[in-house]
């Protein structure tokens, strides 16, 4: 697989390590009243779709950036990649 790094272009997936579902960016608020249940879901439950999946990859043998990669789990086709920090920053801006 080749991952389309937003800054560095096509890079071999071997340069990366995999964390999983990009929803791991959305850490629940620890002070919310339902925090315990929310954290249990956050830590253990996954959507795990067959098809398009947004997921976190870390460019370890590279620029050490975290990427949100959109990939098809059935064909392994990489459909796009963004810097995870941009994704996370856009979310905090939206929620403010």
């Amino acid at each position: 697989m080749l991952i389309t790094h937003p800054l560095l272009g096509l890079r071999d997936a071997q340069e990366f390590t995999y964390l999983g579902d990009a929803r791991l960016i959305d850490r629940p608020a620890p002070s919310a009243p339902d925090a315990e249940a929310a954290f249990c879901d956050y830590v253990f439950l996954r959507d795990n779709p067959a098809g398009v999946h947004r997921e976190l990859w870390y460019h370890e043998h590279g620029d050490r950036s975290w990427l949100v990669v959109t990939r098809d789990t059935v064909t392994h086709e990489v459909l796009g990649a963004e810097l995870a920090r941009n994704v996370a920053l856009a979310r905090t801006r939206c929620s403010k």
Binding site: L45, D47, N48
Partner: peptide, 16 residues
């Protein structure tokens, strides 16, 4: 497992 149980509305502690 995840695909089939999703049809019953369940999310599982599983990745394929």
């Amino acid at each position: 497992s995840s695909r089939v149980m999703a049809m019953a509305g369940m999310r599982l502690p599983i990745e394929s």
